[in-house]
């Protein structure tokens, strides 16, 4: 098989995986930007999102046999349901675990986040069972791009959907942050929450909406994960969460394009490492890159260096 072909195939796989990480990473980076805390429960919000999506898929009875237009419609409905319900989860977690601790000691919300993460995992384990949930492939088919010596480079429909959806969401999201009044309020809170509140911005509401938006994007990532991998369980949130957070830090935490870039990089590193070196050490590779990147660029690739004031 040709090297070029193999490389292209891995590139496609890596970009798909990176898109999923990027969508989760946005939730981390926005929350960090606005209140400066690691929302450790975000990985589990992604997991809840994937379960809500799965339940919606089963309720609607979507399968590979569904006609094309109905399938698209059903998928949109599933994504909308997952986004809405997961957003409620995100809002509730913020309300219970983080808001009472606003302005308090830095480590306290970190511990409540860990507590929430444990709670969500066990809640799903009890309510949905501990065993893995296999899903029949729903979106099938794809295109062959090139072929050499029997090795076919393929891009599947689901990969196209994931990447396109991510690009659309990213574009919409960037517009929301840079153009709308909500985005302006968010950026104001990020810079100086007290000043923003003096200027009449409801800081609590803005922070809640940040969690809601982060959770909704994580839900999209969750639905895509179900469709792409076809297997989920209550524990997927931890590793995906750590990877996505790694992506957010790598890209420069607090920066939206950084989160997307970091997600893509982590996805690519993981895929290429698995393809060319060893699949066992792919997590080690991703984390090592993070460590090395941070040693040379302590505030990430696109992050602003922190200015220390005395």
């Amino acid at each position: 098989m040709g090297h070029m072909e193999y490389f292209t195939q891995q590139l496609i796989n890596g970009v798909t995986l990176g898109s999923i990480y990027g969508l989760i990473a946005i939730g981390y980076t926005m929350v960090y930007g606005i209140i400066g805390m690691i929302n450790f429960a975000h990985g589990d919000i992604f997991m809840v999102g994937s379960f809500v999506g799965l339940i919606a898929l089963v309720v609607l009875g979507v399968s590979a046999a569904t006609p094309f237009f109905l399938l698209i419609l059903a998928l949109l409905v599933v994504i909308a349901i997952a986004m809405a319900l997961t957003a409620v989860w995100g809002w509730t977690v913020e309300r219970i675990a983080y808001r009472p601790l606003r302005g308090s000691f830095r480590l306290a919300p970190l511990i409540t986040a860990i507590g929430m993460s444990i709670t969500l995992q066990n809640f799903v384990q009890i309510s949905q069972g501990a065993r893995v949930k296999p899903v029949q492939p729903i979106i099938t088919g794809g295109y062959s791009l090139m072929e050499k010596d029997g090795f076919v480079v393929q891009i599947s429909n689901i990969q196209i959907i994931i990447v396109v959806l991510t690009v659309i969401l990213m574009a919409g999201f960037t517009t929301l942050i840079s153009k709308t009044s909500l985005g302006r309020a968010q950026r104001a809170c990020e810079q100086d929450a007290r000043m923003a509140s003096l200027l009449g911005i409801n800081v609590d509401r803005t922070i809640s909406l940040t969690f809601v938006m982060g959770a909704a994007l994580a839900a999209v990532a969750g639905v895509m994960f179900v469709l792409y991998y076809g297997v989920i369980d209550f524990y997927i949130g931890f590793l995906a969460g750590v990877k996505a957070f790694t992506a957010a830090v790598l890209g420069g935490i607090g920066s939206l394009p950084g989160a997307m870039l970091g997600g893509l990089l982590i996805g690519l590193i993981e895929t290429f490492w698995s393809a060319y070196f060893s699949i066992e050490y792919k997590d080690v590779a991703a984390f090592s890159i993070l460590v090395i990147a941070l040693i040379f660029l302590p505030s990430g690739l696109l992050g602003r260096p922190e200015v220390e004031k005395v």
């Binding site: 675990a97 009472p100 601790l101 409540t112 507590g115 444990i118 709670t119």
Partner: peptide
Amino acid sequence: VGLMMVLIMV
């Protein structure tokens, strides 16, 4: 236990 961690911290 997870819920208790949250409540104690709050």
